[in-house]
Simulated assay, not measured.
Amino acid sequence: MRRNPVPFLIAEGCLYAAFLGLDLFLPGSGLDVPIKYLSILLCFCYLLGHSRNTDLRLTRVALAFTLLADLFLLVLDRWYTAGVASFCVVQVLYLIRLQRAGRRPWAHTLAFRGGLAAVLLAAGGALGVLDPLTALTLLYFSQLTANAFTALSLGRRGRMLAVGLFLFMGCDLCVGLCNLAPLLPEAPVLVLLPFAQVGMWLFYLPSQVLITLSAGKLCD
Rank of each mutant, 00 (worst) to 15 (best):
V33P: 14
W79P: 02
W106R: 13
Y46F: 15
L15V: 05
L31P: 08
S51L: 12
A151N: 05
P27L: 11
R3C: 04
W79Q: 11
A69L: 07
L76K: 11
F203V: 02
A146C: 14
L116W: 10
R3M: 12
G13F: 11
G124C: 07
L93H: 05
L48F: 13
T134M: 14
D77E: 14
R103L: 11
T81K: 08
S153Q: 02
A123Y: 11
R159T: 04
L15W: 10
T81V: 13
L133Q: 09
G114N: 09
I40F: 15
N147L: 00
G124D: 11
G155F: 01
D77R: 15
V6G: 04
V175E: 14
R60E: 15
A162R: 00
G13E: 13
I96Q: 12
P27A: 09
I211Q: 03
A162T: 00
L20T: 08
V189W: 11
A148T: 00
G115L: 12
L210N: 09
A117E: 05
S214E: 04
N147Q: 02
V61A: 15
L47R: 05
G49N: 09
R156I: 04
G170S: 10
A64R: 03
L167H: 05
F8D: 02
G28C: 10
F65I: 03
I35A: 10
L22M: 12
C174Y: 07
A148E: 00
H108Y: 04
L68C: 14
S86T: 05
L76H: 12
W79S: 06
D172W: 01
F195C: 04
L42K: 03
P194V: 02
L93A: 04
R57Q: 15
A162Q: 00
D55F: 08
V175F: 13
V209R: 07
F203W: 11
N53I: 15
T145A: 14
L213A: 05
L9N: 09
A64M: 12
L56A: 07
A162N: 01
M160L: 15
L24S: 06
G125S: 12
L144P: 03
I96D: 01
K217Q: 13
L95S: 14
P105S: 12
L74V: 14
